[in-house]
Design a protein around this nucleic acid. Structure first.
Lengths: 218, 218
DNA sequence: GAGCATACCTACTCATGCGTAAGGTTACGC
DNA sequence: GCGTAACCTTACGCATGAGTAGGTATGCTC
């Protein structure tokens, strides 16, 4: 009897990963508040105090999930989009990596973005990651601009980058909700919608509101 | 003393609106879970059982907020973008109305979108509104296509519309977080980023991934 | 000015779920 | 073989906040 332990004893590092895996799954299907620490512990095949001992409080646990998934995602993107490529190539590779990642980690994505957005304690945490993404995209645009000897105010760049990131996230949601959808195809569509628009902007083509075409607004 | 009631007695319809106003404010700054019914009642200058008597449970209350704010927003947009205008004009007016609304109801927006997104019970509710928006945008694009005698698969349209809506929401967040930002200017920027991209698509210009330009991928 | 409906309140019950105290069990060094 | 440290458990305390029971004041109608 003494040789058949009911539960395996595992080193800390392994258990931590199991817990994080379980937490991501549970947070993903229940939401942050809907998830209970008991359920996460059960999903991980472990008891609750262990979770507290290793990963801390519920909030800290969620942040840990956020960090792990976020880091993985950023690495996937950064690894694909080498900085010495031309801007459109970089954007394309970045998008492909991004949608590939979301397609492969649909529940991770749900945790990462949909949940964290609304909840105050994590909005800041997420904003940092998001800001890094925006910065990367804005950097690409800026690089392309310099190549064409053009100047654009920094705010303008930021706004375009923001719109691009938002459109991409939106399509990521679209993808995450459709198990049959193809990440590669989605990336192509996004590239079409985004780059052609941004490309026009880069060439100085600008659309103006009708009211400016003659008189001042009342 | 009997002629100085500590609290005014008001007709139901008025109190309901006060409660909804209060609820929107509190949900907006605390989030759905962070908000307590006690705080909402206090903010409305009323006691908790009244809220239950008039608007029902917390979940029902939130849905009521969602509906009111959502309806107002859709009306603002629909009222501005008359269906007999050309597509770019409609899009522009719709965007201007939208950003104007968000700028004027920053907390309503926070309730409406940022919160509802993550929480399971409301995601469906929100998806309906969002779907209506996407439908409207897709309708615009389709209309413009027919005018140019072009055909595009329905899925393609939906995806482009989805990206457009996503980019717009993203800029709305950007706007909501920056009290000094000008809604009108934001709308112009969005129009630039969105329409020039979509406009190219409409003319049949298409970007293709590099690997398709010669050989099949391995 | 009696009666009745509606607006409104104070003060409670009760479930949920986070976080912990105190105690078993296994491996490993010596 | 025996201590010690790490792993892991069961069983609980406790705060929070949703929702309610039951009672009071006010205005309206005849």
């Amino acid at each position: 009897m003494s040789t058949t332990p009911a539960f395996k004893r595992l080193p800390r590092a392994v258990r931590e990963q199991q817990m994080l895996d379980a937490a991501v799954r549970v947070f993903s299907r229940r939401g942050y508040h809907g998830a209970s620490m008991d359920e996460i512990a059960e999903e991980a095949g472990i008891s609750k105090p262990m979770v507290y001992a290793y990963l801390g409080t519920k909030e800290e646990l969620f942040v840990a999930c956020l960090h792990r998934e976020g880091t993985r995602m950023m690495e996937a993107i950064a690894g694909a989009a080498a900085p010495d490529l031309p801007a459109d190539e970089r954007l394309w590779r970045g998008l492909r990596a991004f949608f590939g990642f979301v397609g492969a980690h649909r529940d991770g994505w749900a945790v990462l973005y949909r949940q964290a957005r609304g909840e105050q304690p994590f909005a800041g945490e997420l904003a940092v990651m998001r800001a890094r993404l925006v910065e990367v995209v804005a950097g690409m645009l800026d690089h392309a601009l310099r190549a064409e000897r053009r100047e654009v105010a920094e705010t303008e760049l930021e706004v375009v980058a923001y719109a691009l990131v938002g459109a991409t996230e939106s399509l990521a949601d679209w993808l995450a909700d459709r198990p049959e959808a193809d990440p590669e195809k989605t990336a192509t569509r996004m590239m079409n919608a985004a780059w052609l628009g941004a490309g026009q902007l880069l060439r100085g083509v600008t659309w103006r509101p009708p009211s400016e075409q003659g008189r001042a607004p009342s």
